[in-house]
Design a protein around this nucleic acid. Structure first.
Length: 425
RNA sequence: GGAGAGGUGGCAGAGUGGUCGAAUGCACCAGACUCGAAAUCUGGCGUACGGUUUUACCGUACCGUGAGUUCGAAUCUCACCCUCUCCGCCA
C-alpha cells in the first residue's frame, strides 16, 4: 500500500511513478473520495465531540443529584444524524482503503522502464553454458529414463501439473533443499524457520493484494485459509501488527516450504515437465530491515541466492526487471535465470524483490527508530532457490551421454556419498 | 468432540454503566544524586486518523473481532475468533 499522506502531499509524483509501470492512477476518483471523506469525517467528529461533552456533563450532574432531563432531551436529538454520519464515514473509509490496497508499488528510480520481460536488463552473468557432444535431453526424458520422475502416477493422483519423484531423484530433490538451507543458515546468517502452509486472508493481503490475486491461490473450502504460494506469505507476516525494537533488526529468515499455485491463466504454458507445477518446494530467504539499509540488503540477499547457483556450478544470469514486468508489491526486482541446455535458454529460478515499506504499510509492521519514533519497516525476499527448478537445472546441466547424471560435488555428502544417478540396468 | 476459565497498554495486572485512554508494578527514556555504576528520588512513556497558528496544541476512534442496548460501554446483551485447564480422540 502506498503512503496516503504522501499521496495527499504530492499526488503528481506518485501518479508519474505508477505510470512508469504502466499503471493508470484514477486521480479523479481518488480526489473525489478524499474530499468527501474529509467533509464527512469532520462533521462526524464534531457531532461525536458534542455528544461526548453532553454525556460527560450528565454524568457529573447525576453525581451531584441534579436534574438532567433538559440536557438529555437536547443530546437525544443528535442520535440519528450521528449514526447516519458514522455509517457514511465507515463506508467511505472502506472504499478508500480498498482503492489504495489495489494500487501497486511505485518502481524505484533505478528500475529500467519497459513493458514486458523483453525490456529486462541483464546486470551480470556467471558461468559458461556447457557444450555437449551429444544432443542434450530435457529433464523429463532424463528423469523418466532414470525411473525418477513419474508424471503419469501424479496425474492419476491429482491431475496435471503435479509430479511424483522416486529413488535417487527424490533424494536429490531433498539434498538440494537441505544444501540450500544449510548454506543460508550457516554461511549467510539466516535463521531457519518452519511455518504453517496455510495462512488467513489478512496475512495474504499483507504481502500482496488478495482482492486482485485470489484466483492464483488455492483456498480451503469454507474457511478463511489459503495454501501458501510462497513462504514469503507466512514469514513476512511475522511482523504484522508489531512494533519491533530497532535492536532486533535486521531480521533474516530462511524457510523451506512447499508452495501451491493455481496457475490460473497459464494454460498451455510450460505444460511439459516440472517447470510450472501446482506444488513445488522452495527455500525462501526473507529480510526485515530498517529503511536506510534496505537497498543494500536487497543486493546482499540477491547475492545469497546467486551463491547457491555458483556452488552448484550452474550458469546463470541476473536480470533487473523492467517496470512493466515487476510484481504488484515490488519496488525493484532481480530475477536469476539458470541455463537450461535442452531449452537452449535461461529460465527463471529465483526472484529477489525489495518492497520498501509497501508490505509493511499493509501489515502495520513498524519499529522504533533511534529517535524513539515509530517507522515502517522495509521487507525484502527472494527464492534461494526454487527447489523443483533447481532439480531440473541439475539434471539437464549434469547429464551424460549414457543417460546418467553426475551429482554436483557440493551435494555428494547430502547424497550419502553417491556421485552419479545411473540408468537402471 | 464434551466441560470449565479467560482475552485490558512492551510485559504483568486492577478496573462490573458516568470526569477511564484506563490504577499499580516491571521494563524503557530523560534528569537529580555519584569519580562511575548500583540503589534511591523526580519527570516522561500507546497507536491510528483528522484539524490547526504543524517538532506544539485540540478533536475523534481504539480495552480479542463484529453487531446491539444507552444521553453515556473496558464494564450490560448477542454472535464469532483465539488462548488456557480437564476429559475424550489422535500422528
Amino acid at each position: 500500500m502506498l503512503d496516503l499522506q504522501q499521496l495527499r502531499k504530492d499526488l503528481p509524483t506518485a501518479v508519474a511513478g505508477l505510470a512508469r509501470r504502466n499503471f493508470v492512477f484514477d486521480e479523479v476518483s481518488f480526489r473525489a473520495l478524499e474530499d468527501e471523506r474529509r467533509i464527512i469525517q469532520m462533521q462526524t467528529e464534531e457531532l461525536q465531540a458534542k455528544r461526548n461533552a453532553a454525556s460527560k456533563m450528565i454524568g457529573m450532574m447525576k453525581g451531584k443529584g441534579e436534574d438532567t432531563t433538559a440536557i438529555m432531551a437536547d443530546v437525544a436529538g443528535l442520535g440519528d444524524g450521528l449514526k447516519a454520519n458514522e455509517t457514511a464515514l465507515g463506508e467511505l473509509q472502506e472504499k478508500l482503503n480498498n482503492f489504495l490496497r489495489q494500487i501497486p508499488n511505485i518502481p524505484r528510480a533505478d528500475v529500467p522502464p519497459g513493458k514486458s520481460e523483453l525490456d529486462n536488463v541483464e546486470v551480470r552473468k556467471w558461468g559458461t553454458p556447457k557444450t555437449f557432444d551429444f544432443a542434450p535431453k530435457d529433464h523429463t526424458d532424463i528423469g523418466e529414463a532414470l525411473g525418477g520422475i513419474d508424471f503419469e502416477t501424479a496425474a492419476k493422483l491429482s491431475g496435471a501439473r503435479f509430479s511424483v519423484l522416486r529413488g535417487g531423484v527424490a533424494r536429490l530433490h531433498r539434498a538440494l533443499a537441505q544444501f540450500m538451507l544449510n548454506k543460508h543458515t550457516l554461511e549467510h546468517g539466516y535463521t531457519e524457520v518452519y511455518v504453517p502452509y496455510m495462512v488467513g486472508g489478512e496475512s495474504a493481503d499483507g504481502v500482496s493484494s488478495l482482492a486482485k490475486f485470489k484466483d492464483d491461490l488455492f483456498k480451503i473450502e469454507g474457511r478463511d485459509l489459503y495454501l501458501i504460494p510462497t513462504a514469503e506469505y507466512p514469514v513476512t507476516n511475522f511482523v504484522r501488527d508489531e512494533i519491533v525494537d530497532a535492536k532486533s533488526l535486521p531480521m533474516k529468515f530462511a524457510c523451506h516450504s512447499p508452495c501451491f499455485r493455481s496457475e490460473a491463466g497459464s494454460y498451455g504454458k510450460d505444460t511439459r515437465g516440472m517447470i510450472r507445477q501446482h506444488q513445488f518446494d522452495k527455500v525462501e530467504v526473507v529480510q526485515i530491515v530498517a529503511p536506510e539499509h534496505s537497498a543494500e540488503a536487497h543486493e546482499e540477499l540477491t547475492r545469497h541466492a546467486e551463491a547457491i547457483l555458483q556452488a552448484l556450478g550452474l550458469p546463470y544470469r541476473t536480470m533487473l526487471l523492467c517496470t512493466g514486468d515487476m510484481g504488484f508489491s515490488s519496488a525493484k526486482t532481480y530475477d536469476l535465470e539458470v541455463w537450461l541446455p535442452a531449452q537452449n535458454t535461461y529460465r527463471e529460478i529465483s526472484s529477489c524483490s525489495l518492497f520498501e515499506a509497501f508490505q509493511a504499510r499493509r501489515m502495520m509492521a513498524r519499529f522504533k527508530n533511534a529517535q524513539g519514533k515509530t517507522e515502517y519497516l522495509h521487507t525484502i525476499n527472494g527464492s534461494g532457490l526454487a527447489v523443483g527448478r533447481t532439480l531440473v537445472a541439475v539434471l539437464e546441466n549434469y547429464q551424460n551421454a549414457d543417460g546418467s547424471v553426475t551429482i554436483p560435488n557440493v551435494l555428494v555428502p547430502y547424497m550419502g556419498g553417491m556421485t552419479k544417478l545411473a540408468v537402471a540396468g
